Computed example of a mutant assay.
Amino acid sequence: MAIDTREAYRRALDHFGALVHQIKPEHWGNQTPCVDWDVRALVNHVVGESRWASQLLAGRTVADVGDAFDGDLLGDDPVKAFDISATAAAQAVGGERSLTRVVHLSFGDVPGEEYVTELFADALIHTWDLARAIGADERLDPELVEACAIWSAYAKEGGDRQAAAAGEHRQAASDADPQARLLASWGRRG
């Protein structure tokens, strides 16, 4: 990845957060491009990922955390819940050892850099999902799109588990811009 993985994640999460702050009360029930998720469920997912990141990058295991992050994590103030979780995740990812430590996931141990890269890709693609759902500007940061496309191609080639979660690959037009190609590879129609 041409950009530092930690920086890519922070920027993607910041862009997602900027959109969270644009959500109006009537947006929370809007459908997103993610099957079965409305805006609230999508934000809840990203909050959950952020809360997991802060724990897993601190060395805890899935068993240690248990079901603490199941269910509704947004409560009565979804924006505040997002902000708190994003701050904790960004601090954990920005830590000196975040890329070199071993992260204990449900299926096994992975290098921290792999885990943070997956977090980055998830945050970036869900930024587009959220923008689409609330009618905001859908243009993603071109540098992050490029970094994600490189990683996605590598991950899909190797049968990475994140690639399996990306949705059915759609063929983008050969003249499509890089963002459209990336979104198509993640099963989105831009």
Rank of each mutant, 00 (worst) to 15 (best):
A153P: 07
E114K: 10
G187H: 00
S106A: 14
L99T: 15
G159L: 01
Q162A: 14
A166H: 05
A90M: 13
A89S: 10
R188F: 14
F120Q: 03
I125P: 06
A131I: 01
D109Q: 09
G187Q: 04
D175H: 15
I134P: 00
V103P: 04
A172H: 03
L182W: 04
L130A: 05
A176Q: 07
G95S: 11
T127S: 12
K156A: 14
G135F: 06
A165E: 08
R97C: 07
P142Y: 08
F107R: 10
G94W: 04
F120T: 01
L99Y: 02
R97G: 04
R170P: 01
A155D: 05
S106F: 10
R139C: 09
A165W: 06
A121K: 07
E138R: 14
R189C: 15
F120Y: 13
L99V: 03
A136H: 10
L183E: 06
A90P: 06
P142W: 05
A131Q: 09
A123F: 00
G187I: 02
F107L: 11
A133P: 04
R101W: 09
G94S: 06
E157D: 13
I150E: 14
A172E: 06
L182S: 02
G158R: 15
Y154L: 11
T127D: 10
A153H: 14
I150R: 14
R170D: 01
E146K: 13
D160E: 07
S152K: 12
A163C: 08
D137F: 01
S106E: 13
S152E: 09
S174G: 15
D175L: 08
H169W: 11
R101G: 15
W128P: 05
L183N: 01
V103C: 11
R97P: 00
A165F: 09
L99I: 11
I134S: 04
R132D: 06
E138D: 06
D109F: 01
S152Q: 12
A180E: 12
A121P: 08
G187F: 01
A121Q: 08
G94I: 04
V103K: 09
D137R: 13
L130G: 06
L144C: 03
A89C: 10
Q91A: 14
T127Y: 12
A123E: 01
S152Y: 11
Y115W: 02
R181Q: 14
Y154E: 12
V103M: 01
G94V: 00
L130Q: 04
W151E: 09
L140C: 09
H126T: 00
I150P: 05
A172G: 02
V116M: 08
P178D: 12
W151V: 02
A184H: 02
G158C: 13
L144W: 04
V103A: 13
K156E: 10
S152W: 15
D137L: 04
H169F: 14
T100E: 10
W128C: 08
R132P: 03
A165S: 11
E157C: 02
W186P: 08
L140Q: 05
D175K: 11
F120R: 02
A172R: 02
H126L: 07
D177T: 06
K156M: 14
R132S: 07
S185G: 15
E113W: 09
G190Q: 00
L144H: 05
V103E: 03
